[in-house]
Amino acid sequence: MKIACVIPAYNEAKNIGPVLKKVLPLVDELIVVDDCSSDETNLIAKKYPVTVIRHPINRGQGAALQTGNEYALKNGADIILHFDADNQFKAEEIPIVLAPLIAGEAEAVFGSRFLGKANFPPLKRYLIMPLARQLNRWLGIKTSDPQSGFRALKKEIWQQITIYNRGMAHCSEILFKTVKTGCILKEVPIHVTYHHFGQKLSGGFRIIKDLLLQKLSN
């Protein structure tokens, strides 16, 4: 069973090296999608035994993930894992996310920061996340983490999903489309170390706007 990990990276020269070093031993293929970084992300990633794909124009994290998925599927991946380049996720939790897929207990596994002990900034914990969760419930998604970026899905499920949202709305889009496939979905606890705040309240509204625009323009 070939496990590919896709890491979208944009101006992550500071973090990409340590992240790659930790993730490499845990997967069969590592694909870094450099989303037109202006720093040395690309040069640093190329020093490692990983596939580096570079977007000639910055298109956002969702677009980078779709690029990585397409490459991984074309190269025979059986499971595709998404991981962040900012060193906030813990690489040692990759086997925990992969385990249900390998054991055949699930077809899609999402890491949940709410089942673990993530140290959320207050605004994120008490306002943004509850709002996002409510929005997801309206869409029929009942997962505890509405915006998880740490996920692994079997190739059969990825083949049914195309990520259109290039911004942060891709998290909700992937969740929604995964649920829509009717596959067996499982959440596992993950832990996150926040180096910076991440999503602001305005970012939450942008996600709603992006989801609506994407729905209307298709």
Partner: peptide
């Protein structure tokens, strides 16, 4: 278009394993 161009130029790494 960006994705097509990026994938067209993508090739697996020739670096030895860590």
């Amino acid at each position: 278009l960006t994705r097509q161009e990026a994938l067209r130029q993508a090739s697996p790494s020739k670096n030895p394993p860590l």
